[in-house]
């Protein structure tokens, strides 16, 4: 016997738009803070001047335009990609502990970078980007080929394949200090140092995949109720699953390639929003695209000022923030929230 999706309570219906509005305001504030905070003190007037009246000879303007703005845009894109990717994989797999990397994306990118570095192909930011994307796509394709018949099998294939890739990568790095040194740059997970690379392709890919996620979200609503129910509701489960996996790969692959492995964003953001969105995948995807960047920008801003001796990679800050947040969610809402 099947049942229709539960009706959305009126309070939730009004809470979602309000949350979206508040989220957008918070994102704006986080964006301004991201542009304002850094090692060099830039007056507010110069910040505005860098946008409205750019002077290429002005050091403050250059810092804002060449370093902080690109980094802020990157933070928004990476945060959104990881959070939306997390929302999609958790919904598709109906597994609350799933995160985008579970399909082999992260370790696929790491493996490709390791092999590329060992072969002398990872010398520039652009080549590292290409290797990261290629590794992500190939790893996910292989995982999908092995586990496409069921979601559980897919996840197990992802975990197993990730372990194999991690082991082989580690072996290569241990025997080649040069490779380790090059891999180190990517492996820390950071938004710093990427501002000079041409990020047009990954950013466009993330944007397109986000739109795709919004389009597929309604169909995922049905899949989230279980395959039997989804079939009854007329959803083409196989097609939805395939499209969703492609979107997750593009989102997580692009984010991982440009920023390295950043954990917790894809795991924690969907959890934070689950009760609020009350089973609506479109709202979960939409709000994840707002809250993910907030978390990423806040973490990145903290990363710049945490130590007076220099920056901390943002992946470390997201882990510090994400862990306690996850525990808070569990304590606040109980295991049911997971």
């Amino acid at each position: 016997m099947t049942s229709a999706p539960p009706a959305t309570p009126p309070t939730v219906r009004t809470a979602r738009p309000a949350a979206l509005a508040v989220g957008l305001l918070a994102l704006l504030a986080a964006g301004v803070a991201s542009v304002a905070v850094g090692a060099r003190a830039v007056p507010v007037g110069e910040m505005w001047g860098a946008v409205a009246d750019f002077d290429p000879l002005n050091g403050d303007h250059l810092v804002v335009r060449d370093i902080r703005l690109p980094r802020t845009v990157l933070g928004i894109a990476v945060g959104a990609a990881l959070a939306v990717g997390g929302a999609l994989i958790q919904t598709l797999s109906r597994n609350p502990l799933a995160e985008p990397g579970i399909l082999g994306v992260t370790h696929g990118a790491g493996f490709a970078l390791t092999v590329g570095a060992a072969l002398g192909l990872a010398g520039s930011a652009v080549s590292q980007l290409g290797l990261g994307v290629a590794g992500s796509v190939l790893a996910t394709a292989l995982v999908y080929a092995v586990g496409r018949h069921s979601t559980l099998r897919l996840l197990l294939a992802g975990v197993a394949f990730s372990a194999v890739l991690m082991g082989v990568s580690l072996g290569i790095r241990l025997t080649s200090p040069d490779t380790l040194d090059k891999y180190r740059f990517w492996a820390v997970g950071s938004l710093a140092g990427r501002e000079q690379a041409d990020l047009t392709v990954p950013l466009v890919a993330i944007g397109v995949a986000f739109v795709g996620a919004l389009v597929i979200a309604r169909s995922l609503n049905a899949v989230a109720l279980g395959e039997t129910v989804a079939h009854t509701l007329g959803a083409n489960v196989a097609r939805v699953r395939t499209v969703t996996l492609v979107l997750i790969t593009v989102l997580a692959g692009a984010a991982t390639a440009v920023a390295g492995p950043i954990l917790f964003v894809g795991l924690i953001v969907p959890h934070l929003l689950r009760r609020l969105t009350s089973g609506s995948v479109p709202w979960l995807v939409g709000l994840s695209a707002v809250v993910g960047p907030i978390l990423m920008l806040v973490a990145d801003t903290i990363a710049r000022v945490l130590l007076h001796t220099g920056e901390v990679p943002v992946a470390i800050v997201t882990a510090f923030l994400g862990g306690p947040m996850l525990i808070w969610v569990v304590r606040r809402y109980g295991a049911g929230s997971l």
Partner: peptide, 14 residues
């Protein structure tokens, strides 16, 4: 004179 060394940490933006 000033010198830029080869051990900056790009991943930390320095």
């Amino acid at each position: 004179l000033a010198h830029v060394g080869g051990y900056g940490e790009v991943e930390n933006g320095n």
